[in-house]
Simulated scan of single mutants.
Amino acid sequence: MNHYPVLARIRLNPHHRAVHRDLRDATQMHRTVMRMAPDNLGHSPRLQAGLLYRLEETDTASTLLVQAAQLDPALLPAGYGHAEIKDLAPMFSALRKGLAVRYRIVLNPAKRERLPQDQKNKRGKIIPLSGGDADQWWLRRAADAGLNVHLLTPTNVAPIRPQGPQAPPMRHSLIRYDGTATVTDPDALTQAVLNGIGRGKPYGAGLLSLAPAAAA
């Protein structure tokens, strides 16, 4: 029997001190969302929980989407926000080859710098991509994930720079993609939704959301 994750949609309380802190600091946001996952998950708790999240902001509200195998919003700070839990099993069960879908994802498109031959034993820097290079990166990753993208609309998102003494010294450039696509490989797509796509998953990137496309 398959055990699919759930999705928590949390409308954040704009007057809560912890919300203000988390919106300023991606490291703190990661710690807050991980409070909803079970304890004692070992060395890589986010990975073991299958936890992915995305922040969606408008002029009037901030909403946090969190996907994981198990989530308990009651473990969030009191008054942090209003949470609704959705079972994703019907969405996964509906995936089939040829299905038209709408998608949304925030990504950290990047590539590793290619070093000259005399430095082949070293690893190049991670270089963020933008513009057409980022679009092509997403099209390639989407194809690998079992999606044939028909339409993509990029929106730049505020970059993430993790904070704190244990945070990696790397700035994550984020781009949100919205559009339509056709499912080409349901199994690959299922794994992409479960595992996320690209880098920056602890900081709000990689969560792929799908919905049936409206009939023409």
Results as ranks from 00 to 15, higher is better:
residue 2 N to M: 12
residue 3 H to T: 14
residue 4 Y to H: 05
residue 14 P to F: 08
residue 19 V to P: 02
residue 20 H to F: 13
residue 22 D to P: 07
residue 24 R to E: 10
residue 27 T to C: 11
residue 28 Q to C: 03
residue 28 Q to N: 13
residue 34 M to I: 09
residue 36 M to I: 15
residue 37 A to I: 04
residue 38 P to M: 01
residue 41 L to Q: 03
residue 44 S to N: 14
residue 46 R to Y: 11
residue 48 Q to R: 11
residue 50 G to S: 08
residue 57 E to L: 12
residue 58 T to H: 04
residue 59 D to F: 05
residue 63 T to F: 10
residue 64 L to W: 02
residue 64 L to S: 05
residue 68 A to L: 03
residue 74 A to Q: 08
residue 77 P to V: 09
residue 79 G to Y: 05
residue 79 G to F: 01
residue 79 G to H: 08
residue 82 H to L: 15
residue 83 A to F: 00
residue 85 I to M: 10
residue 86 K to I: 15
residue 87 D to Y: 00
residue 88 L to R: 01
residue 89 A to M: 08
residue 89 A to S: 08
residue 96 R to D: 13
residue 96 R to L: 12
residue 97 K to A: 10
residue 101 V to H: 02
residue 104 R to C: 14
residue 108 N to L: 14
residue 112 R to A: 15
residue 112 R to P: 01
residue 115 L to K: 12
residue 115 L to C: 12
residue 120 K to T: 15
residue 120 K to W: 11
residue 121 N to W: 07
residue 126 I to Q: 15
residue 129 L to G: 09
residue 131 G to L: 09
residue 132 G to T: 15
residue 133 D to A: 06
residue 137 W to A: 02
residue 143 A to E: 08
residue 144 D to K: 13
residue 147 L to I: 07
residue 149 V to R: 07
residue 149 V to L: 01
residue 150 H to Y: 14
residue 156 N to K: 09
residue 158 A to F: 00
residue 159 P to V: 00
residue 160 I to L: 08
residue 160 I to F: 04
residue 162 P to L: 05
residue 163 Q to F: 01
residue 168 P to Y: 02
residue 173 S to M: 11
residue 175 I to A: 03
residue 176 R to F: 06
residue 178 D to Y: 05
residue 180 T to Q: 15
residue 184 T to K: 06
residue 185 D to S: 11
residue 186 P to F: 05
residue 187 D to Y: 03
residue 191 Q to L: 14
residue 193 V to Y: 01
residue 194 L to M: 08
residue 198 G to M: 08
residue 198 G to V: 09
residue 199 R to D: 06
residue 199 R to E: 11
residue 199 R to T: 15
residue 202 P to L: 06
residue 203 Y to E: 07
residue 204 G to K: 00
residue 213 A to Q: 09
residue 216 A to G: 06
